[in-house]
Nucleic acid binder design. Structure first.
Length: 606
RNA sequence: GGGGACGUAGCUCAGGGGUAGAGCGCCGCCUUGUCAGGGUGGAAGGCGACGGUUCGAGUCCGUUCGUCCCCGCCA
């Protein structure tokens, strides 16, 4: 018999009355009535009320000393609570334990914040005392839920013949993409391992190796600045299949995600099967490759009306190869000058030179530029946007990328402003047929949209030479409520085609050999056609748990400045360690921002 | 790298030129049916740090450190 507990604090019910039990856990709350003491005992599974009777003098005297977060073990009899004293808010609320023994396993100093309350606490304090923060309901539930989702994933893939295979954490640096985290190689002075941004090449090599169906709950590391949904290390479901097709990958993930949502959450799926939009369609209708499909406000192209209008800004945009597009928004009432300025700023922040808008009146359009449009043109605009009296129409005239980005941001702004999206609905959709490459303005060169192992659509292969930017890839994203949850592709499996793609992005044979030699070589040994996907686990959990930040679904995240304030990482290392690694520092530790612990604000230490 | 918000008691916050306040928590005492227990008394901070303006600075100005959010960056 376990010396601490026979049952958990979440499982005892009325039918257990009369049983002798032991429970162990923390003092959640104490209610000392002088002549009677109630202790709420908390463990991972729940809360059970324990009573201490003054007739047992010694026991009672110990119970009087109990304080929140003391670790205790109690023994006693399960008793139905007196009539009328049940607590319907507690699963164990029909019973209580009449304590006969109490062991204090460990006292607790007063915690820096209250464990039993859900109020907001400063994030730095939460992270510094993460082991206490994790005791609180929110985090305990999130981390528990995380386990359930990952378990479901493992079972699902195991059922379908997938093998979970680990790949190295110490690997080679790949200069493009995100900045690598580097690890000095002691045995090779001046050389470094890199921590993986993803197991991409390894999983493809596992296909060459014949494992056919691979997955891994893999850590992916990127040394880039943080965001609400980005951490230095995050977790992906990395997955790859041989002899597969895009549809097969999509179906596999679609069923998995449908199960997760329907079996593990109370959320509603907006549509089953998930809508599949091409990249071109998503941009056209929503101005984004990760559209939020929970609401309308779809974008309409009015370039043809603009081309013949009197309004020079509109005409000019179309004549110089851009377009004019707009959305119609109801329910805004009458916007003040200040409000229209704010809305305009959203568009200009996205690169637009301005924002054209009209208020739709009963008989005509109103607004600063209405005078440039004939009655006929006004009717055409109304018809194009299906606008009704009381609506506002907003138009952006510019190069297409600017038009799309501006209207995308406006769409999301009105979603939030007008509460158009139901929080309990998950609009999952696939976006497919992405271009294989995109043009990098800053660097003046072609780059892969996803990565350079993506297979072009068969009919576009010949365009790799003539018009690479027009080549569509066998590339797909899973999107939920405007958030990208997964990204994948069918891969190139032939060395000649891979070499061709390398050359399009400016990697010659010698460089390809040096950096991707293993893979190119592997492809010469009958590499099977293969493809896969890599869903982000953290982002999925954020969406499913309605958490505003990725830190809320990770047990031990880093701060925005990529620090671990609990473990004090990163930190300096000894001169001896550096010497062993053949590393000389260019700057002494402590000379950089944020690197001086002594400069940090002090906080309570009770 | 850039922009914004914030930093006052252990926690959450109010105060905005005249010497610091609330709720919760904490400590003591009282209370036998509470479950955000109740009552009562008490301790606790000099307002992130540094420098300036002022007779006087949480309060105004500057710098700096830190946290969070956004852009850039990043799938």
């Amino acid at each position: 018999m376990n010396p601490y507990r026979t049952n958990t604090a979440g499982e005892l019910r009325a039918e257990n009355a009369g049983e002798s039990v032991r429970l162990a856990g923390w003092v959640h709350r104490r209610r000392d009535h002088g002549g009677l003491i109630f202790i709420d005992l908390r463990d991972r599974w729940g809360i059970t009320q324990v009573t201490f009777d003054p007739e047992r003098a010694e026991l009672f005297a110990t119970a009087e000393k109990l304080r929140p977060e003391w670790s205790i073990s109690i023994e006693g009899e399960v008793a139905r609570r007196p009539e009328g004293n049940e607590n319907p808010d507690l699963p164990t609320g029909e019973i209580e334990i009449e304590a006969t023994k109490l062991r204090v396993l460990n006292e607790s100093v007063t915690p820096p914040f209250e464990i039993d309350r859900e109020r907001e606490v400063d994030e730095l304090l939460r992270l510094k005392y993460r082991y206490l923060d994790l005791r609180r309901t929110r985090m305990r539930e999130n981390i528990t839920f995380r386990h359930q989702v990952v378990k479901h994933i493992r079972d699902y893939l195991d059922d379908r013949g997938f093998l979970e295979i680990e790949t190295p954490l110490l690997t080679a640096s790949t200069p493009e993409g995100a900045r690598d985290y580097l690890v000095p190689a002691r045995l090779y002075p001046g050389q470094f391992y890199a921590l993986p941004q993803s197991p991409q090449q390894f999983k493809q090599l596992l296909m060459v190796a014949g494992f056919e169906r691979y997955f891994q709950i893999a850590r992916a590391l990127r040394d880039e600045d943080q965001r609400g949904d980005r951490q230095p290390e995050h977790t992906q479901l990395d997955l790859e299949m041989s002899y597969t097709t895009q549809d097969e990958v999509l179906d596999l993930i679609e069923v998995l995600y449908t199960e997760i949502v329907e079996e593990l959450t109370n959320k509603k799926l907006a549509a089953k099967p998930f809508p599949r939009l091409t990249y071109a369609e998503a941009m056209d209708r929503f101005g984004s490759d990760k559209p939020d499909l929970r609401f309308g406000l779809e974008i309409q192209d009015i370039s043809e009306i603009a081309r013949s209008s009197e309004f020079k800004v509109f005409r000019g945009a179309v004549e110089s190869g851009g377009s004019v597009r707009g959305i119609s928004v109801g329910g805004l009432g009458d916007l003040s000058r200040r409000e229209t300025d704010e809305i305009t700023k959203i568009a200009t922040d996205a690169g637009a030179k301005g924002l054209a808008f009209f208020k739709v009146e009963e008989d005509a359009l109103a607004g600063p530029i209405a005078k440039f449009f004939s009655g006929e043109d006004q009717d055409s605009l109304l018809a194009a946007l299906a606008a009704a009296p009381g609506d506002y129409m907003f138009f952006v005239a510019d190069r297409n990328p600017v038009v799309f980005e501006s209207l995308n941001r406006l769409r999301l702004h009105f979603r939030d402003r007008l509460g158009l999206a139901d929080e309990n609905t998950l609009a999952l959709c696939w976006v497919t047929d992405f271009p294989l490459f995109e043009w990098n303005e800053d660097e003046g060169r072609i780059e892969p949209m996803h990565h350079m192992f993506t297979m072009p659509q068969e009919e576009d292969v010949e365009k790799l030479d003539s018009d690479p930017l027009a080549v569509i890839g066998q590339l797909y994203d899973l999107v939920a409520n405007g958030t990208e949850l997964a990204s994948g592709s069918i891969r190139i499996h032939r060395p000649d085609l891979q070499q061709k793609v390398f050359s399009v992005v400016g990697i010659d044979e010698e460089e390809a050999e040096r950096r991707f030699g293993a893979m190119l070589n592997a492809f010469r040994y009958g590499a099977p056609p293969h493809g896969g996907i890599a869903p982000g686990i953290d982002r999925l959990l954020m969406v499913l748990r309605d958490e505003p930040n990725i830190r809320e679904v990770m047990a031990f995240p880093k701060t925005q400045a990529a620090r671990d304030e609990m473990m004090n990482a990163p930190g300096p290392v000894s001169e001896a360690q550096l010497k062993e690694l053949n590393i000389a520092l260019r700057r002494a530790p402590g000379s950089e921002r944020g690197s001086n612990p002594a400069a940090r604000p002090s906080e309570g230490n009770n």
